[in-house]
Structure formats: structure tokens, C-alpha cells
Design a protein around this nucleic acid. Structure first.
Length: 402
DNA sequence: CGAGATTCATGTGAAGTATACCTTTAGGCTTAA
DNA sequence: AAGCCTAAAGGTATACTTCACATGAATCTCGTA
């Protein structure tokens, strides 16, 4: 009985055609051939990098603009095309893309260089070598390879925030160490003010040329969504107005195209799970909530245990009393919790740094204030809407085996 | 009443420690001549 | 004797601790109007 039910379910599942034709198209890793409303920027990038084909050194390039404005996409697009030409014409050119935000990959000077060296096929250890040594290995390996190297550093602001701008200084000076090769840097930043806070020497050399990526407006987002949904969904599976709704929602938040695409994809997934014939507008509303939740719980779940504990403490305090939360309170609760879990509590000094990190990740808001006579502390408030907190708390307690 | 001193609770920087990992080196063992 | 393996020595990066000093506005103090 049961067995045949299950068989039937699977058979039905197979027979029933899903809404998606090709879901990959909506994922952020996908690079479409056609990038609407970025023709100008792509052309600019291409003309900046073109000298590399003649084995001349292109200027360093700096791209900035809010998240989801197509910076990464445009660069990768140009990269692909450029690589194609250069390999067919046998030009000595290599292009590397590296996202500096990835933890344990490129968030310190050592790790950044080590990752780069690894991309050149060098087998370098994750720790133990002097940083100079890593530089030497890296320089050596690229110097014999090819004439031109273009290094794309995505989310470069994150790197500087964590590890200081000395790295960039070292990097820009790298060219003087190289005999046969030249490195061109392409920096990408979401933070518009980032370049201004840099050491002037670094700034001038890194931003020889810069391109601003403006935010998309709702109409442009619609174009993008239409373009992609044609490939992603089967015909006539989207309710009239659904795409417009996606575009409008995403446009409300500074025109983030990635968000718009996520919205559409998750809505499609939800619709499919509900066995709905079409992607309806209501699915998009649900998708918005889900994305928010998933995004946060994704970050939270990859946090180190200690940070999770700190976060849980702040959430608990936030629930218990709706007054302001201060560092000292968090630390006391954290200490109690950590002994419950059987984790050795960190010092308050360290926790202070952890709170600062959580703030940087945008999971909480922590602001240093002075309470005058009553000392100085961080005042912590929530960035997450109250309705989402119980869910995340549940996840936290699970991960922490509480 | 108001300017300046005081105070508190913690921020923050620097230096030190523990841990995990790396390379080099020297000793001991095996092996082939 | 040459070659190979192993373990110790000496080095680094990273996460964390310890120590000590810095902060900055509410509150206190005290001289002055």
C-alpha cells in the first residue's frame, strides 16, 4: 500500500513537468551572454583592458556601485571574452578573479597571496610560512608565466576593512619586483566611500581609472528579469504582473538585480513545491520572507560557535527586556550560556571584537556610546525584524546542542 | 549657575601565549654495491 | 657509502588572553555672580 503510494508519487513527480526549464539561469553564478543596460560599462571595461592584447599594461581599474548592480557580472563577462581572444591569438595573458569576502580564502594578507599562488598551481600550506616567503613564491611563479596578468579583486573593501590597506600598497608595488610580467588590478567595491579612505598613494595607483555602476531602476530590472525568465521558465508559467512585482520589490532596495533574480527563483521553487501550475504573485511575497530568513540563517550557521553563542545571548536579552542592550549584559549571559554548552568562555576583550564582527556582518547593530557617568559601552540593537528572531534562535540552539 | 574635575564601564591598542602547521636538519636505519 | 625515513628544532600565522591606557558625557565640585 504505502509502497505503491510512494511509487506513484515519484512517477507523478517525474511526469509532472516543473515550472522551470533551466533553473541555473536564475542563480547568481550564471553569466548570461547578454547583459541589459550595462553595455556602456562593459564597453568601458573592455577598452580599458584591451591594451593587454597588445601585451601592453592596462591601467588599474576600479569599479564601484551598490550590490547587485552588475559589477561582478560585467567584469566576468569581459574576462571571458578577453580570455577567448587571447588564447586564440596566443597572447600571454592571464586573468584571475578572486572574491576577498570568502572566509578562510582571502581575508588576510597571507591567505590572499596564498590563494593566488595556489591558482598558479603552487602547492602552498595554509599557515606556517613567512609572509615574505609566500610573496616570493607567488612572484616567482607568475614572473615566468606570461606577459600580462589581470587580477580582479572583488569586494576589496572587505579585505581592507579586515586586514588594513597595507596589503594594497604591497600589491601595487608588486610590479617593480617583476621582470617579465606586469600585473593589472581590477578592484571591485560595494562601498562607495571606500576609495576615499585609502592611503593616497594606494588610491592614486589603484584608481587610475574608475567606473561607477549606477543602480538599476524598476524598468531596467524588468528587462533583466524578462530576459532571464525566458530561459529559466517554461512558457506560460508566470502569472501576469509577477515579474513586475519582483522588479518593483527589488527596485525599492536600491535596485539590486541579484535580489530580484533570487526573488524570482525562490518564488518559482515555492510554486513548484505547492504543485501550482503557475508562478503567482503571492509566491513572490512568500519568497521575499524566505530569502530574508535564509540569507541570515545562512550567515549565522557558518559562524564560529563562540560568535553564535554571543548572538544567542543578545537575542535572549532582546526578548527578555526591550530596553537597550549593553556589552556587559551580553557578556554575563554569554558566560552563563557557554558553561551550559560546555564551551570555555572567551574574555570580554575578545567578545568585544566578536560583537564588532557581528556588526560588520550586519546581523546586529552595535554602536559605541558613552553613558556619561555610567561609562562607555556598545549599544546593541537588532537589524533583523522581530518576527524572524524566533526562527533564527531555534536554529542557533540546534547548532549549539542546547 | 557654570566651568572644570571626576567617574564609570567598557573601548581599544600592544604585547604576550597557545596552537597548529611548515621547513630544515640530524640521526638512525636500510639497502645496494 | 648512499638513500630514505623519522623526530626534533626552529620558525610563522592565527586566535585568543593579559595588561594598560583611552574615552566621553553624565554627574559632581566649587568658585563666583
Amino acid at each position: 500500500m504505502v509502497k505503491s503510494d510512494i511509487n506513484k508519487f515519484f512517477e507523478n513527480y517525474l511526469e509532472k513537468k516543473g515550472l522551470f526549464e533551466d533553473k541555473k539561469v536564475l542563480q547568481s553564478s550564471y553569466t548570461p551572454n547578454n547583459i541589459p543596460h550595462r553595455e556602456k560599462e562593459i564597453k568601458e571595461i573592455a577598452s580599458m583592458m584591451a591594451p593587454a592584447l597588445r601585451e601592453e599594461k592596462p591601467s588599474n581599474l576600479f569599479l564601484y556601485g551598490k550590490t547587485g548592480t552588475g559589477k561582478t557580472l560585467s567584469v566576468l563577462h569581459v574576462k571571458e571574452k578577453l580570455e577567448k581572444v587571447s588564447t586564440s591569438k596566443k597572447v600571454g595573458l592571464k586573468i584571475f578573479y578572486l572574491n576577498c569576502k570568502l572566509k578562510k580564502v582571502a581575508d588576510t594578507e597571507y591567505r590572499l597571496i596564498a590563494t593566488l599562488a595556489r591558482q598558479f598551481g603552487q602547492n602552498v600550506p595554509i599557515t606556517g610560512l613567512p609572509t615574505d616567503e609566500i610573496y616570493r613564491i607567488f612572484i616567482e611563479s607568475i614572473d615566468k608565466e606570461s606577459k600580462n596578468i589581470i587580477l580582479i579583486l572583488d569586494e576589496i573593501d572587505q579585505l581592507v576593512k579586515k586586514a588594513g590597506d597595507e596589503i594594497l600598497y604591497n600589491l601595487t608595488r608588486l610590479n617593480s619586483e617583476l621582470k617579465n610580467t606586469q600585473i593589472t588590478f581590477v578592484g571591485i567595491s560595494n562601498d562607495l566611500r571606500f576609495a576615499n579612505d585609502l592611503d593616497p598613494r594606494v588610491k592614486s595607483s589603484l584608481t587610475e581609472e574608475d567606473i561607477n555602476f549606477p543602480s538599476y531602476n524598476a524598468l531596467q530590472l524588468q528587462d533583466i528579469l524578462n530576459e532571464r525568465s525566458k530561459k529559466a521558465f517554461r512558457e506560460k508559467t508566470i502569472e501576469q504582473g509577477a515579474i513586475e512585482k519582483c522588479a518593483a520589490l527589488a527596485a525599492r532596495e536600491h535596485g539590486d538585480a541579484r535580489r530580484a533574480l533570487d526573488l524570482l527563483r525562490v518564488a518559482g521553487e515555492l510554486a513548484e513545491r505547492e504543485n501550482s501550475e503557475k508562478l503567482l504573485i503571492k509566491h513572490i511575497d512568500k519568497a521575499e520572507e524566505k530569502i530574508e530568513r535564509d540569507l541570515i540563517s545562512d550567515v549565522v550557521s557558518t559562524l564560529p560557535k563562540q560568535s553564535q553563542l554571543v548572538l544567542l545571548s543578545t537575542f535572549n536579552l532582546h526578548d527578555k527586556m526591550n530596553s537597550k542592550i549593553f556589552t556587559g549584559d551580553v557578556y554575563n549571559l554569554y558566560k552563563k550560556l557557554s558553561s551550559d554548552v560546555g564551551l570555555k568562555p572567551l574574555t570580554q576583550r575578545r567578545m568585544s571584537d566578536l560583537i564588532a564582527e557581528l556588526d560588520m556582518l550586519g546581523i546586529i547593530n552595535a554602536r559605541v556610546i558613552s553613558k556619561g557617568r555610567y561609562g562607555r559601552t556598545r549599544e546593541i540593537s537588532m537589524t533583523i525584524p522581530d518576527s524572524e528572531i524566533p526562527d533564527i534562535k531555534e536554529g542557533l540552539t540546534k547548532w549549539l546542542n542546547l
